[in-house]
Design a protein around this nucleic acid. Structure first.
Lengths: 237, 237
DNA sequence: CATGTCATTTTGTGATCACAAAATCTGCAA
DNA sequence: TTGCAGATTTTGTGATCACAAAATGACATG
């Protein structure tokens, strides 16, 4: 089973802000691949991820994978257990409650900071993304839905060019996304509601408090479905 | 210049939650050492840190250092520049503003969550720490002050046993601590004021809103001095 | 069939190597 | 002295190795 370390592998989008040139290129690809996998729910909570496994899967040596796993563990997107094993953390009611609270504190704030930097072109982009989201909801494509929902929110947040709040929110999304996926796999996507259209309208009208309300409401709506499931899971088997 | 990799080196406190046993022991030590160094201001913003340098300084191989630097970079405690060089990020007015805002949003919340888990013994510990802080302020020992101030806040926060908010706040402290140190080195510690006694009183009386106010006020007080300096630095040379 | 024990395999970890890019130093010329 | 081109050193990166701990599977025993 000799690894080749040659296949460039597909680089599925991913928010890589690493060095675009040669320095740390492989690490950047690995980071983008795993991040994207977490955000779209391709990693199952509780499932262990192995260095060598990911390495051969991505066609690279174990070295960059080791570094990326440490990075993601530092962002609490992955969990390093006492035996050194790395796994996607399981969701607990306490964790869920904290993530929800943190999102409600940070995301409306950052959205407001981005508000006056969002152009008409951004509104068009957001509208386009939201249309695709609606299509995914009816078609039931959970993976595409998650990717697009992330894109919608972070297209807003990224406009703030924040160096502090944005990474914190990034960390939060990495923490709840894998759990989201398992829920959608169970209850489907048809029940999903969002307040994206309210957000877009608030951006058009440059209304800060309306945007805050839309983001808050969207978070509450989106996490509401998840909350019921986590409680069901925690009490039952 | 053959490295020995034998000296255990002093392990200055540090909040290591790594595996206490054998697995990843060296990485845990390195992580604790660098973290502690950042929090007490032993690393200067803008100054580059090298893997081999830290490795030989800590008496370990470059390998665990590499992983720890990636970890800290993921927490925005360190910055990986486009040439691969790792350095302590410089503070900017924008960054400072965001850190302050984020602290005001998250820390009072977590303090309140910790309130009902704080015992009389914790109050005694906090009082003891605060006494030592007062001593450091008059004696002008900035490094000890920073270490104790961190200990005071995180003794409160840690009582919440939070898995989400606490790491976010951890990241924030790692980001502003190095800059704090440079300011204290310039203006001294005599002008420092805090609201630790108000916080202790709020904890004793189990008064949530009083505790929130004390934490908020403490953050504002503490960052106020820094804010003036960052503006002075940004406009001047 | 259940259970504990032992051999085998897998896995994380620390160390080391080789290479290229970047930084630093040196020395020469204007 | 200043500026620049070349050599030299430093540094990050990816790969590989060796080892111990852990997980897994096989198997004998009750």
């Amino acid at each position: 089973m000799a690894a080749r370390y040659s296949a460039p592998t597909n680089n599925p989008a991913g928010n890589v802000q690493e060095q675009p040139s040669t320095r740390g290129a492989t690490r950047g690809q690995v980071d983008a691949a795993i991040r994207s996998g977490l955000l779209t729910g391709r990693f199952i909570p509780g499932k262990a991820v192995t260095i060598r496994g990911l390495a051969s899967e991505l066609g690279v040596s174990p070295m960059p994978v080791r570094e990326v796993l440490q990075r993601l563990a530092a962002e609490n997107a992955l969990e390093v257990k006492s035996n050194g094993r790395v796994q996607v953390p399981d969701m607990t009611p306490e964790r869920f409650d904290e993530v929800l609270k943190a999102r409600l504190l940070l995301e409306p704030e950052l959205a407001e900071r981005a508000l006056y930097r969002l152009s008409k072109q951004d509104v068009r982009t957001l509208t386009k993304i939201d249309d695709e989201i609606d299509a995914c909801i009816v078609s039931g494509d959970a993976e595409a839905y998650m990717q697009l929902n992330h894109a919608f929110h972070f297209h807003i947040y990224a406009a703030s060019s924040s160096k502090v709040l944005l990474p914190l929110i990034d960390s939060l999304w990495l923490q709840f996304a894998p759990f989201m996926r398992t829920v959608y796999g169970r209850v489907g996507t048809v029940n999903l509601v969002d307040q994206h259209k309210e957000a877009i309208r608030a951006i058009e009208q440059k209304d800060p408090s309306a945007l805050r309300d839309a983001i808050s409401g969207d978070i509450t709506d989106g996490m509401g479905i998840l909350g019921k499931e986590i409680l069901k899971n925690a009490t039952g088997g």
